[in-house]
């Protein structure tokens, strides 16, 4: 049976993203919290996507990516999120040179060959949460600010409190001592966002990232991280329309490439 569409599913530690691509166009997508049951969430999203788009299992190719790529047994193939993000960002920005992806559990920097569009180098954060979406979540919780308002709060301050700890746990204690010393919530929020931007920019510079640089992953929706990353890197960076979906889109595009050539 001829394949009608290509589905990419990016199972991240915090969110699962699924997209449907047909003839190189993004047709449909879904995002849901991954919870502890990656497999069930993945199956539900996949079934829903097929149903809503009136497709049978045999008519689609499912490519999984992300932290939980090996857990979804219905996938036809899998690819790492590094390769998937590189491909997915090219969907939005064909002339991309570098990618910074900050997800819930990890952050990564990728350099892409302009000639081939393939990954030429990459760097991932270590197993600690600093420099990831989880770091922002913990800090937003400590400041009692909803996560979707955290970036805006940071940008209200023209001063950034200094957060020197690179460890999430120590940084949380540092935030409490900053409060005790009279720093405002906005200043602290700004300092937290600067610390994540500094850490990720440092990691990215080590592999020679440069413009055009695309910032993706869930954290790319945070305006303060984007602004401070631009300041650390010294140039403007781009954010795609759906920054959380680039991995899933990349997986679907790779599936399409592998099955049409």
């Amino acid at each position: 049976m001829k394949l009608k569409a290509f589905i990419g599913i990016d199972i991240g530690s915090l969110a699962t993203k699924i997209v449907l691509i047909s003839e190189g166009r993004l047709i449909d997508h879904r995002t849901e919290r991954s919870t502890y049951d990656f497999k069930r969430i993945g199956h539900n999203l996949f079934d829903d996507l097929l149903k809503k788009n009136d497709l049978n299992r045999e008519e689609v190719f499912l490519m999984s990516t992300g932290y939980g790529r090996n857990t979804i047994d219905i996938a036809d193939d899998r690819v790492t999120e590094i390769t998937a993000h590189a491909k997915g960002t090219q969907f939005f920005f064909p002339d991309v040179h570098s990618v910074i992806d900050i997800g819930g559990q990890d952050s990564k920097a990728i350099v892409i060959s302009k000639k081939t569009g393939n990954v030429v180098d990459f760097q991932m954060n270590d197993k600690c949460a600093a420099g990831t979406g989880r770091f922002l979540e913990v800090m937003a919780h400590a400041l009692e600010v909803p996560i979707d308002q955290f970036g805006d709060l940071a940008l209200k301050s023209n001063k950034s409190a200094s957060i020197s700890s690179t460890c999430t746990v120590f940084a949380e204690s540092e935030v409490i001592s900053l409060f005790a010393r009279g720093a405002s919530k906005e200043e602290i929020a700004s300092g937290i966002h600067r610390s994540i931007a500094r850490r990720v920019a440092g990691m990215a510079k080590r592999i020679g990232v440069g413009p055009k640089l695309v910032f993706c992953g869930g954290v790319a929706k945070n305006p303060a991280v984007k602004k401070y990353l631009e300041e650390e890197l010294g140039y403007e960076i781009e954010t795609p329309e759906f920054p959380q979906l680039t991995g899933a889109i990349g997986a679907a595009l790779i599936a399409q490439e592998n099955n049409t050539n």
Binding site: E81, I82, V119, M124
Partner: peptide, 8 residues
């Protein structure tokens, strides 16, 4: 990291 390198 290993798989991504091998894909590279």
């Amino acid at each position: 990291r290993i798989e991504a390198y091998l894909e590279m």
